[in-house]
Amino acid sequence: MRAVTVTPGEPGSLRLVDDHPEPSSDEGAILVQALAVGVCGTDHEIVEGQYGEAPPGERDLVLGHESLGRVLEDPTGTLEPGDLVAGIVRHPDPVPCPNCAVGEWDMCRNGQYTEHGIKALPGFARERWRVQPRYAVGLDPALAEVGMLLEPASVVAKAWDHIDRIGTRAEWQPRSVLVTGAGPIGLLAALLASQRGLEVHVLDLATSGPKPALAAALGATYHTESVDELPFEPDVVVECTGAPVVVLDAMCKAAPTGIVCLTGVSTGGRTVDFDAGALNRTLVLENNVVFGSVNANRRHWDLAAEALARADQSWLASLITRRVPLDDYADAYRQGSEEIKTVLDFR
């Protein structure tokens, strides 16, 4: 079968293998026919050789962690042949740490987790893959064209789950949310905010392309000015850019008792002239919380599947700005300036 692979740590090693082995039954009882995989910044960084880890004893890594497939066989009876399914990316470490032991592998304490298409587990960018029942998430049939959005949606489902949990520390009635960054994570964060009935604001540099219209379709207000120029203080900030200046401004902008969730990953090596003392004073005196969030566990994947099923399917489809057939696989891993989500199509 065909599979898209890289040799981790070697830039320029991206290739389409025509004779990749069929998935081993050791990977899971459920056999899945791949329909599509989403491509994100993590994939670009792995292709560039920045990181990535092949399975033990292997040289190459199959890419793809944003999966969508259709069940071919499931002897466990968890799913039926023909069902839509996505595979959970992260698996718990073998020790396991206290969090992994209770199914919270997104909160792994020792870093020995594994991840499909990223760290020590083959990814989903292959014509057939297998998954264990506990890591198989069934999808509503309406998501046949957009189900690969489940992985990024699970990230923001976790973010909102933790925001809600932190909010219970005191009487808290949030009204407004600011989402910084209108990429897939940001727009999906805005979707979940709109489903909560909040006043949604989305901030991004783009003044053209699909982003302003997608935000407006959610009933959100779209901003292109800097965070510190905004004329309001949001109760919640979901930061999705990882840009150091935006991150710091977001921390300073939240309303008293506000919650700031950081989902964007910053690159190191950049120094910003910033008054850390003033930020500390604000956080302490206003009882604000800043926390980071990445990945998701099974509970969040299920929440994300419910959120996508409730969403306007045409809006979700508009997030996919480019679909690339498998034969043109290399084109899927080239970044475009105004793209939101690129999908590699196996159909």
Results as ranks from 00 to 15, higher is better:
Trp105Ser: 09
Asn99Tyr: 13
Trp172Gln: 07
Pro75Gln: 08
Asp345Ala: 08
Arg299Thr: 15
Arg109Gly: 07
Ala216Cys: 12
Ser337Val: 11
Trp172Ala: 09
Leu149Pro: 02
Leu214Met: 05
Ile88Met: 14
Arg270Ser: 13
Leu149Gln: 04
Ala159Pro: 06
Gly264Trp: 02
Arg169Glu: 10
Ala170Trp: 14
Thr257His: 09
Pro21Thr: 09
Gly87Ser: 11
Gly12Asp: 09
Gly264Met: 06
Ala120Tyr: 00
Ile259Ser: 05
Gly264Phe: 01
Asp43Gly: 03
Asp331Phe: 12
Phe274Arg: 10
Ile166Ser: 10
Arg298His: 14
Phe274Lys: 08
Lys158Asn: 14
Glu171Val: 13
Thr5Leu: 14
Gly269Met: 11
Ala144Asn: 10
Ala309His: 07
Asp106Ala: 14
Arg134Leu: 10
Glu233Asp: 15
Gln335Thr: 12
Glu73Ser: 15
Ile88Val: 10
Val227Gln: 04
Ala157Cys: 09
Met148Lys: 02
Leu191Thr: 01
Gln33His: 14
Val265His: 02
His116Ile: 02
Asp93His: 10
Ser337Phe: 08
Gly292Cys: 12
Val202Asn: 00
Thr76Ile: 14
Pro184Gly: 03
Asp106Met: 08
Ala36Asn: 06
Gly209Cys: 05
Asp74Pro: 07
Ala189His: 03
Val247Ile: 15
Glu339Asp: 15
Ala243Val: 15
Thr78Pro: 05
Leu248Gln: 09
Ala255Lys: 04
Val324Leu: 09
Trp172Val: 04
Ala330Trp: 10
Ala255Ser: 12
Arg109Asn: 08
Ser176Ala: 12
Leu35Val: 15
Val95Glu: 15
Gly167His: 03
Asp302Ser: 08
Asp161Pro: 02
Glu45Val: 04
Gly9Trp: 07
Asp43Arg: 06
Phe124Leu: 14
Arg90Trp: 04
Leu63Trp: 04
Thr224Trp: 12
Val39Arg: 00
Thr180Arg: 02
Pro23Gln: 04
Thr342Ser: 12
Ala307His: 11
